[in-house]
Design a protein around this nucleic acid. Structure first.
Length: 635
RNA sequence: GCUGAUGUAGCUCAGUCGGUAGAGCAACUGAUUCGUAAUCAGUAGGUCGGGUGUUCGAUUCACCUCAUCAGCACCA
């Protein structure tokens, strides 16, 4: 005789065990129709779930976030069913939900084509129309393995074999299609109305490149058509922010076939670079770093000593001369250690902080290249702190604070922090790793931030804190990092003299805030959609005349603004003012300054902002004051 | 690196079921001197990513290759 407590606090008593669907029915027919799943004592279940005890229950409909998730998950099953109908010898594997949608991986003798995709989507619609009921059954592990092997689903059988034996296995059936799944699912396929298959891709079975490549179909699903349209519109808008597209439009940089993964910076792009570089240089100074510069290539023996050759030789560039092999540096740390080692250091000198805008080359796999976000030649705002073990926490905490300030100054608020822990292939003992990981945790704790731990993702020489930012379509990219490294000093024989005149190994902290200048600028461009704030704008304003009569006056205005250090150009072309305004608007200039006869006569300028706002006439000094303010506030 | 897609003028794209290519914008020339997102007219511009093959003939078909894009794997 279960008593069911509903979200509004009311309670209902039933004579015997009831299903979620029956409870919904008892409340109202409309709710029963809308029910997609239930939440019993906080656990998400099917509408067919039988409640035989006192419990709290929330009926999950498409209005709930959980409801949308169930819909997406069920749509993945719908996709799988359609594929099995059209391609009976395709095998199903996994089909989870992801942000904004879902995917399903299939094993098939040939890749799916875009035409297949259209056919599959059509078949999905047909299954929805059939409104097949979805039912759940629990099966013994061995029976389930038997069952899936029997219907030729080898991958499913493999999945079951890897599930711990104490977990019950549930199977979901809709029409002729049965899939292993934890659930829950919608009660019938008719509930799935708004979906779209988005793209085809390859994906390795179990995420391992040694395994077979499966065919992955990505889809999106929503509760309302409007939501789908809004989502598609959002994607379109995001694509307009693509840094590669904007770089072309705004003439910032280009890349070409002869130099894959390299960047040709154009004058306007290089202005942004310089603005970022000068800013970071100031950060170095404030953080107590000394800027240094190491060589671009060094004998390969050094890289063998450091351990990089063992771990990364396939991804390094080499060059030869007079029977010596040199490695083009993929990192700056060995160079910095050489600089450190060139002198003798007392414990009193520590921490010693070196920094460099270090140009690195890494032969990244071709498929990894991505605009300027992932390149083969890049520049790190790389720094290395040589310190005693006791100084680590303070240094890491100070770094963290500084990094967060930098991100904030560049207009970023959505930063995710990760802690990457010991990888399989690593140097050093477990005790050293315990110490290293705990030191970073302690620093994060002291900083009072939340972080996600990533087991197995650390560098071969130590664990690292990572700072990630998102690009325009939501892909996360690592920018900053700080890494605890007791190994490199050991390998490259760095030391300091302690208070007892004994040689000691310093701890080395590798750190970067923007990470790769290229990547960071790429993300910056996407973040601002190319409309850079005044302090980063390649051209901060253009002064344009209405007719030739004001040409000299316009030149004078440009001269004054330039003298104050601003990046200002004249546009004296014999074009209509509307034409010029349109052009410079498309170039996303922060300010357009217009001078006609009226302004010339009064010694003023007419100011138009990037937002299209007309600030009216003002003296140049008033504009300068406004600009100074914007530069200081970095807006 | 793997799977798929794409590669045509500076840019955005069309096109050829095999007969050596076209638009808009940009550029150039001329006219226009016009006050807040496109003035008009004319001119010029491409060995259709590269290579090999099939063919009387290839930008179009086949194969190879390079690059780009999406995803996967990788990311010191």
């Amino acid at each position: 005789m279960p008593v069911i407590r509903l979200p509004d606090g009311s309670e209902r008593q039933f004579e015997q065990a009831v299903t979620v669907a029956e409870v919904a029915q008892s409340i109202g027919a409309g709710l029963a129709r809308a029910a997609l799943a239930g939440k019993v004592d906080g656990q998400l279940v099917d509408t067919a779930y039988l409640i035989d005890r006192d419990a709290s229950l929330a009926i999950v409909t498409e209005r709930d976030a959980d409801g949308l998730d169930v819909i997406r998950h069920s749509t993945a099953h719908l996709l799988a069913q359609a594929v099995k109908r059209l391609f009976p010898d395709a095998q199903v594997t996994i089909g989870p939900t992801v942000e904004d949608g879902f995917y399903y991986d299939f094993s098939y003798k040939r890749p799916f084509t875009p035409e297949d995709l259209a056919a599959i989507e059509k078949e999905m619609a047909a299954i929805v129309k059939q409104d097949l009921p979805v039912s759940r059954q629990v099966m013994e592990r061995s029976d389930a393995i038997q069952y899936f092997k029997g219907i030729g689903e080898a991958y499913k059988a493999q999945i079951i074999e890897s599930i711990p034996s104490n977990e019950p296995l549930s199977l979901y059936t809709q029409g002729e299609f049965t899939d292993l799944c934890r659930g829950p699912h919608v009660p019938s396929t008719g509930k799935l109305k708004v979906f779209k298959l988005m793209k085809l891709a390859g994906a390795y079975w179990r995420g391992d490149a040694n395994n077979e490549m499966l065919q992955r179909v990505y889809g999106t699903a929503w509760t309302k058509k409007d939501d789908l349209d809004a989502y598609l519109h959002r994607l379109e808008e995001a694509e307009k922010r693509d840094h590669r597209k904007l770089a072309k439009q705004l003439d910032l940089f280009h890349q070409q076939d002869e130099a894959p993964g390299m960047v040709f910076w154009h004058p306007r792009g290089w202005v942004i670079w310089q603005a970022v570089e000068q800013y970071v240089r100031q950060v170095y100074r404030e953080g107590g770093y000394q800027e240094v510069r190491g060589p671009q290539i060094m004998d390969v023996t050094l890289w063998k000593k450091s351990g990089h050759w063992d771990n990364y030789q396939d991804n390094m560039f080499f060059t030869e001369s007079e029977k010596r092999t040199y490695a083009v540096k993929p990192m700056n740390c060995p160079g910095h250690v050489q600089i450190y080692n060139a002198g003798l250091h007392s414990y009193r000198d520590l921490p010693i902080r070196y920094a460099e805008f270090g140009g690195c080359h890494r032969n990244e796999p071709s498929g990894a290249l991505h605009g300027i976000m992932r390149v083969r030649a890049f520049t790190q705002d790389d720094g290395h702190i040589f310190c005693t073990p006791g100084q680590v926490e303070t240094e890491v905490t100070a770094f963290h604070r500084q990094a967060m300030q930098v991100y904030s100054d560049f207009g970023f608020s959505d930063i995710s922090i990760k802690l990457a822990l010991r990888p399989e292939k690593r140097l050093g003992t477990d005790a050293e790793w315990d110490r290293a990981e705990e030191a970073l945790r302690a620093a994060l704790r002291a900083a009072g931030v939340e972080w996600i731990e990533l087991p197995g993702e650390g560098a071969f020489y130590g664990p690292k804190i990572e700072y990630h930012l998102k690009d325009s379509i939501g892909r996360a990219w690592q920018v900053g990092t700080i890494q605890y490294d007791p190994m490199m000093p050991e390998r490259l024989d760095a030391s300091y003299i302690d208070e007892h005149s004994q040689r000691q190994r310093p701890i080395m902290l590798h750190r970067a805030i923007v990470g790769s200048m290229e990547r960071f600028i790429g993300i910056l461009i996407e973040n601002y959609a190319g409309a850079m704030p005044l302090w980063l704008s390649p051209v901060q304003a253009v002064v344009m005349n209405i007719t030739d009569a004001q040409a000299e006056y316009a030149k004078n205005v440009v001269g004054i603004l330039k003298k104050q250090g601003f990046r200002v150009q004249a546009d004296l072309r014999n074009e209509k003012i509307t034409y010029k305004i349109r052009e410079h608007s498309l170039q996303k200039l922060p300010y357009q300054l217009i001078v006609g006869d009226k302004e010339m006569a009064a010694g003023l300028i007419a100011v138009r902002t990037r937002q299209g706002e007309d600030l009216g006439q003002m003296p140049v000094e008033a504009l300068l004051a406004r600009w100074q303010d914007e530069m200081t506030r970095r807006v």
